[in-house]
Design a protein around this nucleic acid. Structure first.
Length: 171
DNA sequence: TCAGTGATTAGG
DNA sequence: CTAATCACTGAG
C-alpha cells in the first residue's frame, strides 16, 4: 500500500484534516513489528490568527516545525505527561497542524501516543519518508461530523467554539 | 470533580 | 533564575 505523498499534506489544514479520517496510520517498531490503525478523530489548528494554535504566540523552538512544509510531525508534551501527535500541513511559513486525537480502538491523544510509543524523538519526523510512522490512503470516505475543539477555552469564545474538530463513527 | 507532572515560555 | 501555563488522563 502506498503512503500519502507531500502533495497531500501541502494543502490547507481544513482540507487535509477531514480527509485523514478513515485513513490508515502505520507504526513500525524497531523490532520490526508493524501496527495499523484507522484514524477516527482529528482537530485542525490553523495559522497565527487562530488563538488556539500554538503558532499564535509566534515562532519558538517548540513551534518551529509548524512553519515548515506539510508532511512533518509536530510532537510536544502537555501537562507534564502526555505527548501530542500532530501532522504539519500547508505551505512553508503557514503554520498549521492536525492533532490526531483518536484511532479506532484507542481514544484520546495522550493514550494514543502512549500506546504507539511516540515521544519527543518523533519531533520533525517526515511522514513521507519515515520508516517508523506514516499514513496510507484506504479509499474510505466516511461520513464526517464536526464540532468545537477540546480543551481550548483559553483561546476565547470564537476560537474555542469554531467547529474544527472532525470525527467519523467507524465501527 | 480534581490532582499529577515537567517541558516550555516570558520576564526579571 | 522564577513562576505561570497547559490541544490530558485516571481515580474517586
Amino acid at each position: 500500500m502506498q503512503r500519502f505523498s507531500k502533495e497531500f499534506y501541502c494543502r490547507d489544514v481544513l482540507d487535509v484534516a477531514p480527509e485523514m479520517l478513515g485513513q490508515r496510520l502505520v507504526r513500525r517498531y524497531s523490532n520490526g513489528l508493524v501496527e495499523k490503525y484507522i484514524v477516527t478523530e482529528v482537530e485542525a489548528y490553523r495559522g497565527c490568527e487562530d488563538l488556539a494554535c500554538h503558532a499564535s504566540k509566534g515562532k519558538t523552538a517548540r513551534t518551529e516545525i509548524m512553519y515548515s512544509e506539510g508532511g512533518r510531525a509536530y510532537v510536544y508534551l502537555i501537562y507534564g505527561m502526555h505527548w501530542m501527535l500532530n501532522v504539519v500541513t500547508g505551505d512553508k511559513n503557514h503554520p498549521q497542524a492536525v492533532l490526531i486525537r483518536a484511532v479506532k480502538g484507542c481514544y484520546g491523544p495522550g493514550r494514543l501516543t502512549r500506546r504507539l510509543r511516540i515521544d519527543k524523538s518523533f519531533y520533525g519526523e517526515d511522514f513521507t519518508t519515515s520508516q517508523r510512522i506514516w499514513f496510507e490512503p484506504t479509499g474510505r470516505t466516511p461520513a464526517i461530523k464536526a464540532g468545537p475543539r477540546i480543551g481550548v477555552d483559553y483561546a476565547g469564545e470564537y476560537w474555542a467554539s469554531i467547529p474544527w474538530r472532525f470525527w467519523a463513527d467507524i465501527d
